[in-house]
Design a protein around this nucleic acid. Structure first.
Lengths: 190, 190
DNA sequence: ACACGAAACGGACCGGCGGTCCGGTTGATG
DNA sequence: CATCAACCGGACCGCCGGTCCGTTTCGTGT
């Protein structure tokens, strides 16, 4: 694939920005792609050429927001990055996700409803899941790591995050996740 | 509220049956209310008068399917019903839900996407959640019972159930849920 | 500087769906 | 049997995701 043309790149950026703004503006309300296109000062066709579908748009936006964490995980310093013991990596990762989720409630909600059917296909979700499953597998080889990983990611469901942070702030979410994780992967685990 | 007229009751039943049939027929694919109405041999208006909205329809259907469990919980014999120690009730309840979910994957999926935004408002979901939160609160008073209850219910997410039962059958789901529950509420807990 | 083809643009257009409305029909009641 | 509220059906509405195609713009080779 050759490099993207300058106008194309500019429009992609404009569309992502517009989506963010509308998300911040209207909260978790449904946002129409017409609205996104209008705000970006772009035709609707352009939105679809750049992102393929509603789903693709929100996946891209989430991927962008998650890029920092992703980089930290597979190349950054411990405990998030490689090198630390699995238990520390698990806790650090979940902590990071809690922060991300709390700061992006609207995006998470939009992403959920856009990807509803194929949540498990979303690249970002998969990455997170695989990372978690790997760690859980090391910590508790006898458990169904795949399953546990999915459940742990359930902590960052939009509605749930809204509730938790609504009464108790990010700290409540962080604490609850941390508590659960330490229960699943107790101190005793290597 | 006075009793329902005979034709009204008949139509409500026809609509619920038609929905079930379409669910069984087309799996988790999106089902339009036009299709439901057509199959029930009824006008679309009737569907809305009876159930208020797409959401209402699927909520009603789920409530119907869950009625047996509901009755067993607040009036049946232990360990599902009152009387047994919380830990046994917890495990029995989750086991029951696993069975229900495995048998109603399509309905669960439809219900999820129909209630997406207000999952936490759904009467059935609330009932389940409150029951779980109560038990968890007894077993681990120091934990965030509300949060844990939501996560446990995450076990019955449509997509997840599909995956689990797809490779391993109901037993895999049952085992995984049971394992997790015993971890969260260990033997030592009273 | 210019010409030229590929790539991108935008907005009219389409089909489908959830939900509403209202003129006609039906079932309970006395 | 008369009466009337409740109910029925399906035409209708507005919205939205997604497509299409005539037009414009960008980058490259000359």
């Amino acid at each position: 694939m050759a490099a993207e043309r300058a106008d194309a790149a500019r429009n992609r950026e404009a569309i992502l920005r517009a989506t963010e703004e509308l998300l911040a503006l209207h909260g978790p309300e449904r946002i129409s792609l017409d609205a996104v296109a209008a705000r970006a000062g772009v035709g609707k066709g352009t939105v679809f050429r750049r992102f393929g579908s509603r789903t693709g748009l929100f996946q891209s936006l989430l991927a962008e927001r998650a890029a920092r964490i992703r980089a930290a995980i597979d190349g950054g310093p411990p405990p998030l990055g490689p090198g630390a013991p699995p238990r520390d990596r698990l806790l650090a990762f979940l902590d990071e996700l809690a922060g991300l989720a709390a700061k992006n409630i609207a995006l998470i909600a939009a992403h959920e409803q856009a990807c509803a059917a194929d949540k498990h296909q979303d690249p970002t979700y998969r990455r997170w899941h695989d990372h978690l499953a790997g760690l859980v597998g090391q910590l508790r080889p006898e458990a169904d790591a795949e399953f546990v990983a999915h459940l742990l990611l359930g902590s960052f469901d939009g509605e749930l995050v809204r509730r938790m942070t609504g009464s108790g702030g990010v700290d409540r979410l962080r604490a609850a996740v941390r508590d659960l994780a330490t229960t699943v992967a107790p101190e005793s685990a290597r």
